[in-house]
Each structure stands twice: as C-alpha cells, then as structure tokens.
Simulated assay, not measured.
Amino acid sequence: MSETVQMSARALDHGASWVDPLHDGPEAYRTPEERPTLAEAQAWCKQLAGSHYENFHVATFFLPRAVRPHFESIYAYCRVADDLGDEVSDVRVASRLLAAFGDMLDECYDAPERSRHPVFVALRETIVACDLPRQLFLDLLIAFQMDQIKTEYATMGELIEYSRYSANPVGRLVLMVCGYREEPLGLLSDKVCTALQLANFWQDVVEDAERGRRYLPAVVMERCGVDEGQILGRVFTPEFRLMMESLVGETRAMLREGSVLNGLVDRELAVSLNLFTNGGEAILDGIEAQGYDVLRGRPVVTKAKKVLLLMGALGGKMRASLGGGRRR
C-alpha cells in the first residue's frame, strides 16, 4: 500500500467530528484527519507534481538532488491553490476555499505543529530550510483570488501587475531555494516570469475566451482595430495579426532582458533556467510560425523542438558537472 493510501486509510478510521477546511474542494486535495509524517507528505507532493506536470520533473532533474523535495513542496502548494480556484465552478465556494488555504498557510508559519495537510507539512520543512518569506506564498493566493473576480484586462500594465502575483513569486522562490536572495537577481527573474506568463496568455487566447476570460489588453485591441467578437468567432484579420506580432515582440524582448539572469547563477541552476527561458522562446516561435493566428488553434512546441531543448539541457548539465562552482 502506498504512503498516500496509508495516510488516507488512517484518516478514515477517525470520527466525523473534525471538519476539513477544504471539504468543499476537489476530493484529492482534502485534508486527512491525522497529520502525515514528513516522508508521507513529501511523497504526496512528489506524486502530485509527477501526475500533473511532466515538464516539472524534467526541469528539476537538472537541479541538485537535495533541493528537489523543496521544489516539489512549492509546486504542490501552487498546484492545489490553483485548482481550488479553477476546478470549483462556484466562485463563492472557490473564494472561500482559497481563504481557507491562506489560513492554513498562516498556521504553517505560526503554529506548524497543527498543520495536517501534506502540502503544509512538507512546505514547513522547505520554509525553515530555505528561510522563505510568507509574503511570496500569499502573493500567489492573491492572484488566484483575482481570477475569481477579474476576467478581463484593460492595459498591459494591468497584466504585468497580475503577473507580479501569479508568476513572479515562483521565480523568486526558486532563487531563494538555490541560495540567491539579491534583489537585482530577483528583478531579472521577475522579467522572465512575467514574460513566460504573457507567452502563455498569447498561446491560450481561444481557450481562455471559452472559459470567460480575456487577457488581451483592451487598449491594445482598440488601437489595432480588433474586437472581442473576433476571438470567440475565430475571425483572423490583418489587424489581429498586427496586434499579436506587437505583443509577441514585446514579450520576447522582456524574456531576453531577464535571461541575463542565467549567466549570473551557478551552472546547475542556469541549466534549469535556460530550459524555461528557451521554452518561452519556443512558445513565441510557435505563435510566429503560425503567422500569429492563435485563433485557428493553440500554438504548441513540437516534439522535435522539445527534444532539442532537452538535449541542450543535458549538455549543459554535463558541462556543469565537469566545471562546478558558481558564477558570481
């Protein structure tokens, strides 16, 4: 019997007097009545990461083995919070679940012995080992709460502000886990993370529209002569192409400005960061190769391109192993 199943089975042996703060959420994320051990909690986070995002394991493979559990606990926190917001159809219930998750985060910092959810049992170990500030985790919850009430954006500035909460904290947590706390590096990471967030928005225009969300800035649409009906109607015009070309160009410039970071960290971390920045470039290349027509289908990174990215990362890891040391 797996550790995760054992943990769930023990919880069923208890009475129903205790009320799980996440009882209205997805069943897979409900809190066991009995606190899991650290090993069980870390196994739960590792299993969650592996079952939801294969690229996560590809990226973390290139990091030192000792820090991988920390990345898995951070990913699990992000994954569960994101799903509490996105996988619950009732906005009021989703907002309540996210608020409860925030309370559980506070408990993890202020009274960790009371934490029962595997995310927070594992995350506590990461917080202490890496001295991670609470605010970065709270910022992520702000983004998920924003998703419940804000479904369209007027300006690029609003999108950048959203990315400050939805994406940038993850990059800063990655740096801190790897021992980097300098603000200039954090600012470069913010550029990369914001650019990756924007690249995902440009890639998912139709999918987001079908979910009632629009991340294309209204000001840019108006300036280029594009209206919202074109998105759901999938009406591609020269004006839409011009808009997407401008957005992709601005995003690519931001990504390249931030990627200076990759040359300022140790070689092992640089390999993973290069994999992410190259992946962002590949998304933007895919949009460009499609003639900027994101309305006819979601641009994807081809398998051949993924193989090339992976081969490049493997070569980088080998060079890092041979070279060693930090670039400071």
Score class of each variant (00 low, 15 high):
11 A>D: 11
26 P>D: 13
158 E>Q: 12
18 W>N: 01
143 A>H: 07
141 L>C: 05
290 Q>M: 01
52 H>A: 06
124 R>V: 05
91 V>K: 13
32 P>Q: 06
31 T>G: 08
149 I>M: 00
197 Q>R: 00
192 V>S: 00
292 Y>Q: 00
100 A>F: 09
127 I>D: 02
143 A>C: 02
160 I>M: 06
208 D>L: 01
296 R>Y: 10
173 L>M: 08
213 R>A: 02
131 D>R: 11
179 G>A: 01
231 I>Y: 09
171 G>D: 08
90 D>V: 02
36 P>F: 07
139 D>W: 08
141 L>T: 09
281 E>Y: 06
117 H>C: 11
100 A>M: 05
112 P>K: 03
225 G>E: 11
239 E>N: 15
286 G>E: 06
326 R>D: 15
82 D>R: 01
8 S>C: 02
204 D>P: 06
57 H>W: 11
153 Y>Q: 01
229 G>N: 12
326 R>K: 14
77 Y>E: 08
199 A>N: 10
111 A>S: 09
26 P>Q: 12
172 R>E: 11
293 D>F: 10
266 D>F: 07
287 I>W: 04
295 L>Q: 11
264 L>Q: 15
197 Q>Y: 06
44 W>N: 00
45 C>K: 01
127 I>C: 02
143 A>Q: 03
71 F>C: 08
149 I>C: 02
39 A>C: 03
33 E>T: 14
228 E>D: 15
133 P>V: 00
106 D>E: 14
101 F>C: 05
170 V>I: 15
214 R>N: 14
276 F>I: 05
127 I>M: 00
320 A>T: 09
220 V>S: 13
150 K>Y: 13
131 D>L: 00
26 P>H: 11
192 V>W: 03
37 T>M: 00
95 S>V: 01
80 V>N: 01
200 N>D: 08
174 V>N: 08
103 D>K: 05
217 P>W: 06
81 A>M: 02
197 Q>L: 01
185 L>S: 09
43 A>E: 15
157 G>N: 12
156 M>K: 08
280 G>C: 04
100 A>E: 14
131 D>T: 04
130 C>P: 10
300 V>G: 03
